[in-house]
Amino acid sequence: MNSEKYQELIDKHKPKERRAKNALIAFIVGGIMGIIGQFLIDAYSNLFSISNSDAAVFMIMTLVFIACLFTAFGFFDNWVAFAKCGLIIPITGFAHSMTSSGMEYRKEGPIYGVGSNVFKLAGSVIFYGVVSAWTFGMIRLLIMGG
């Protein structure tokens, strides 16, 4: 086998392996986030003796706080670069995108810097979430009777 053919083979296999590894890391990290979420729900509902749905709100606020704080400390960016969708798809990605764009535009002032850029990435999530929720809500309400 000559070196050119060998190079071709490497190119064919290299990205595929990285994809499999990325997918595995995303699966494991995302799964651990799910376990943390369930653990926090159990902990809060036992600690404050509240219902599971209230504990879920506390859990989401905790995860948002942790993600914002770690982003401000600077090492959450490296975690996201490593785990990719494992941390982007959970609610931590939403919080991370807000804090990181807030930090990025910090030097442009509090109004046109932080205030108007915080929702630069998270805005599309809220925007299309509301549009789809309105559409599907109307479908359920008008066609299926609520």
């Binding site: 990325n22 995302g30 799964g31 979420g37």
Partner: peptide, 29 residues
């Protein structure tokens, strides 16, 4: 179940991210 479901959602997101030109913003939306 929590581990499997949350992991599976993230896995789907990662597969879409790696195999298409969509950005993380597209995927979260």
């Amino acid at each position: 179940y929590s581990f499997l479901f949350a992991g599976f959602i993230c896995l789907i997101g990662q597969v879409i991210l790696d195999n298409t030109k969509l950005s993380p913003g597209h995927i979260t939306s």
